[in-house]
Simulated assay, not measured.
Amino acid sequence: MDFIQTLHIITDPTRYQILRLLMERHYCVRAISKKLAISEPAVSQQMNILKKTGIITGSKMGYHMHYLVNIDFMKQILEQFNKEINSVKTEETLTTKCICEYECDRKY
Rank of each mutant, 00 (worst) to 15 (best):
residue 60 K to Y: 04
residue 89 K to N: 10
residue 91 E to P: 07
residue 91 E to T: 05
residue 98 C to Y: 12
residue 34 K to W: 11
residue 15 R to K: 15
residue 61 M to I: 13
residue 11 T to V: 09
residue 19 L to V: 01
residue 30 R to A: 12
residue 105 D to I: 13
residue 44 S to V: 14
residue 59 S to W: 07
residue 50 L to W: 02
residue 31 A to R: 08
residue 37 A to H: 14
residue 52 K to I: 10
residue 37 A to S: 11
residue 72 D to S: 06
residue 33 S to D: 08
residue 106 R to H: 12
residue 53 T to Q: 15
residue 91 E to L: 08
residue 10 I to S: 01
residue 79 E to W: 08
residue 66 H to T: 04
residue 35 K to H: 05
residue 2 D to L: 05
residue 47 M to G: 01
residue 90 T to D: 12
residue 86 N to A: 06
residue 103 E to L: 12
residue 8 H to V: 07
residue 83 K to E: 13
residue 28 C to A: 09
residue 36 L to S: 01
residue 71 I to G: 09
residue 52 K to H: 13
residue 37 A to V: 06
residue 102 Y to C: 11
residue 32 I to C: 05
residue 57 T to V: 13
residue 46 Q to P: 01
residue 19 L to C: 01
residue 45 Q to M: 04
residue 103 E to I: 15
residue 32 I to K: 01
residue 34 K to V: 15
residue 78 L to F: 11
residue 88 V to H: 12
residue 21 L to E: 00
residue 30 R to W: 11
residue 6 T to M: 05
residue 24 E to P: 02
residue 61 M to N: 10
residue 84 E to A: 10
residue 69 V to W: 03
residue 93 T to K: 14
residue 13 P to I: 06
residue 50 L to F: 01
residue 78 L to K: 14
residue 93 T to R: 15
residue 51 K to Y: 08
residue 91 E to Q: 06
residue 97 K to A: 14
residue 40 E to Q: 13
residue 40 E to R: 07
residue 100 C to R: 07
residue 97 K to G: 10
residue 33 S to C: 07
residue 97 K to P: 00
residue 9 I to C: 06
residue 68 L to Q: 10
residue 97 K to N: 13
residue 50 L to Y: 05
residue 57 T to A: 10
residue 59 S to R: 15
residue 96 T to H: 14
residue 47 M to R: 02
residue 34 K to T: 15
residue 30 R to C: 06
residue 104 C to N: 07
residue 7 L to N: 15
residue 30 R to Q: 11
residue 42 A to C: 10
residue 99 I to R: 15
residue 104 C to G: 05
residue 69 V to E: 03
residue 35 K to V: 00
residue 31 A to S: 13
residue 18 I to T: 04
residue 6 T to V: 05
residue 64 H to F: 07
residue 86 N to H: 05
residue 68 L to R: 09
residue 60 K to Q: 07
residue 90 T to L: 12
residue 73 F to Q: 03
residue 30 R to F: 11
residue 67 Y to D: 04
residue 1 M to C: 11
residue 61 M to P: 02
residue 29 V to S: 02
residue 6 T to K: 05
residue 66 H to Q: 08
residue 89 K to P: 02
residue 50 L to R: 02
residue 60 K to C: 00
residue 71 I to W: 11
residue 47 M to H: 00
residue 70 N to G: 04
residue 3 F to S: 08
residue 11 T to E: 10
residue 68 L to P: 00
residue 57 T to M: 12
residue 66 H to V: 06
residue 13 P to N: 11
residue 62 G to R: 02
residue 74 M to R: 00
residue 55 I to K: 02
residue 13 P to W: 04
residue 65 M to R: 04
residue 66 H to F: 11
residue 28 C to W: 01
residue 25 R to C: 07
residue 44 S to E: 14
residue 87 S to Y: 01
residue 37 A to P: 00
residue 57 T to I: 14
residue 87 S to I: 03
residue 54 G to H: 06
residue 79 E to Y: 05
residue 7 L to D: 08
residue 20 R to A: 09
residue 70 N to Y: 06
residue 19 L to S: 02
residue 3 F to R: 09
residue 27 Y to K: 03
residue 30 R to H: 13
residue 14 T to K: 15
residue 57 T to G: 09
residue 78 L to V: 12
residue 26 H to M: 13
